[in-house]
Design a protein around this nucleic acid. Sequence first.
DNA 1: CGGCTTTGACCAGCGC
DNA 2: GCGCTGGTCAAAGCCG
Length: 302
Amino acid sequence: MSGEKLGELFHHDSTIFDPYSLFSLRSGGPQGLESGLPQFSGFLDYLQSSTDFGFTSSLSQEPFGLIGDRHKVCKAEPRATENVISSVFAGGGTRAMTANSSVSSSSTEAAGEEESDKNEKNEEKEQEEEDENKDVKGADDGADEDEKAKTVSKSRKKGEKRQRQPRFAFMTKSEVDHLEDGYRWRKYGQKAVKNSRYPRSYYRCTTQKCLVKKRVERSHEDPSIVITTYEGQHTHHYPSNVRGSSHMLANQQSSMPPSFHHDLFLQTLTPPLQQLNLPANYHDLLLLQNSIHPSFINSNQP
DNA sequence: CGGCTTTGACCAGCGC
DNA sequence: GCGCTGGTCAAAGCCG
């Protein structure tokens, strides 16, 4: 992916949401858009006044809550971790990450389609696979039965591009790879990453019908930094039986006020971002570099 | 025994 | 068209 493309992507996408909500579904019922808005006023003020952020103009052009759909800048609560370095959102998205999110952005057509596609896809998946089985069987009579079934089950509809869910990534200084965030995750894959000696792990939310995924990898340039990318939106609250959730919930209530700490965000995001050497192969972080500090991305490009 | 991780294989997308 | 890479699947094994 080129820097140009990333920049282009970024300028199409401008939404701020409460990343904190990703990690903390608060008690007291869902918080709608209205109730969440004040949390960001300070943050927006900062963005609009900052000269370091290339995206401030796009943010300030639209009233908050009506901002475009895709790009989200966020701060993550360093819950089970030492220190959240920075965070970034990439990809298409609409609503806040969780039902209880403090801020939910307005839906756009594209995002709406994506969302409905996601649900439909999920519901139709089994039917699709059945249909595909029939199709392929008819066309490929000579193949081994087992192999056939295997291949068919994995195949997707031709001509259909893989749908991407809203994504955001953040970097955390931590010794543990898989950071506890209150949700239950099942690891479904691990891949070696090009230009990195550290593998990337793929996790899926274990809650039924919740399609949220996350990728976890270590920065090859600074192994103490864990890069976590979330994709999709939780359709549920914290699972009650989650390991360590009670501890985390207690922790969050005592450590975090109910509003977004934009000053904390500034402490964690701004300086480290400009000091960090981000992995060059990391799409979302390239996006981050490009959007946060244009000079930074240049310094990391070959 | 259920839930989870590991891991090799497979597939799609993209660049050349 | 081919090769590379990221993403996903699913069988096997592990663990509480």
